[in-house]
Design a protein around this nucleic acid. Structure first.
Lengths: 249, 249
DNA sequence: GCGAACCGTTGAGTTAAGTCAATTGTTCAC
DNA sequence: GTGAACAATTGACTTAACTCAACGGTTCGC
């Protein structure tokens, strides 16, 4: 109960009040210009969209928005890293996604009705995001139907990714879920090994994979002792992905 | 190993060879005309799309497509019910979604590159689907940018739904996952109770929720004995959803 | 530079969920 | 209609994962 109250209290705290910065540094928006949602935009339209947006600086652990809050903006990550999570009625924090520079999030809100954020978003470290008004982007699409193609392609990819995430979570045991997660972190799939960096602190990866931090730690220790991975902080060396997959039966 | 071989053997079996029927029964395509992806299409264009499509009749347990197969078509369910599932390397069957009449599936393949089905699709009972060529729909969008808007709205909704499905799966214990699943089946959310029908046989709901059929059965029996639900075959009566949510802490 | 937080790891004990097996009820094909 | 396959349930047992607790190692604020 005390927990529940704490959660509700958080709803009343103001968010989206971070310091905004002038948007004169063109170079740092290069990534934006090459994102699937924006790269087909005419410079004039993109500039107009950027003009209507605000650049936010977020500190470590700073909350950007809350679940159920009306969603008037979506976001593009310029630098840093964020995570999406939900709180359930008993206050348990469940991590759903992490977002890297060059990615968009909450962009599906463009067509939600009523538009409300489906989760919390917070900075995992000092970060910069571009806060784009949903209405501005929608207007752009409404007046330039040819732009919808690019957005469509991005949205389809997003749906595929979410489907894939769901697929991992239907794996019934913790070890195999973790192995699947690690394989997916490899840039080239399962073909060849490589070093991967966990996109989240270990305790949050655990939460993302629906297991306890202790379980996560034990599985990793076990994989390590079997020579399947090497662990250096949040960097993992996977030398033989095929063997890892074989282990997961 | 024997299992693995069986799986691979299935890959070689021909699919998509069901009997096609003439598309003269206009009435049964009414649902198609009101679907978000098609309702804004001019009659001429919709008719042309339908002309290029084939209507398939699928028998009980008949396979429609296999995971990893090149995806040249997406589908609209006219009648019956289908399920999407994946097989892992050891042959375990994991159910990912069920699809009701009036719904589309594999439609995200329009923008996949290369387009390959991400899972298996099979009929849960005798069903009819419309098999729409990906290329035909893409051409329609390419030549009529104004149509993209409708597709965009549908794709955004799809991404939101998948995100929500993922969210349920990060719930760590089987009972709470099942309760969340049941609540979501209620048409009016958690506000008032009602009777819901499981969209899948119980053993497949269990698979969808990453638990064993025995566990599913035991949890349901327990909820029943606590007066939280009434069970009649695949129909469940949820009289007090709020109490059910409270139980799941 | 020091202590307080926090993160990650490890150990010990407990519990939820999986496994195996037996039984009944249903559905379906012939 | 009958028997074979399958779906669902229940019991007994095992095990994977959770919980609680203690303990190093880092990081961060002062």
């Amino acid at each position: 109960m005390a927990m529940t109250q704490a959660v509700e209290q958080r709803y009343t705290k103001p968010v989206l009040v971070a310091i905004n910065k002038p948007l004169d540094e063109e170079d740092s928006l290069q990534a934006l210009r090459s994102h699937a949602m924006f790269r087909s935009l005419r410079p004039k339209d993109l500039d107009s969209l950027i003009q209507q947006s605000r650049r936010l600086r977020l500190g470590h652990h700073q909350l950007l928005y809350r679940q159920d809050m009306p969603a008037h903006h979506f976001f593009f990550v310029i630098s840093g890293r964020l995570r999406l999570y939900r709180l359930d009625s008993s206050g348990v924090d469940r991590t759903l996604d992490s977002i890297a520079p060059g990615d968009c999030f909450a962009e599906v809100m463009i067509y939600a009705d009523p538009p409300r954020y489906a989760c919390y978003a917070e900075a995992l470290k000092s970060s910069e995001v571009l806060m784009i008004p949903v209405k501005a982007y929608r207007d752009l699409l409404d007046h330039n139907p040819e732009y919808a193609q690019a957005a469509l392609s991005h949205y389809a990819k997003r749906a595929v990714t979410r489907f894939h995430d769901l697929e991992i979570m239907t794996v019934q045991n913790a070890r195999d879920r973790l192995i699947r997660y690690l394989i997916d972190l490899l840039p080239n799939g399962a073909e060849e090994g490589g070093e991967v960096e966990l996109p989240l602190p270990k305790c949050l990866v655990a939460s993302r994979l629906a297991m306890q931090p202790e379980t996560f730690s034990r599985i990793l220790a076990d994989l390590k002792s079997n020579g399947l991975i090497r662990v250096n902080r949040s960097r993992l060396l996977i030398s033989d992905p095929q063997r890892l997959i074989a282990i997961s039966q």
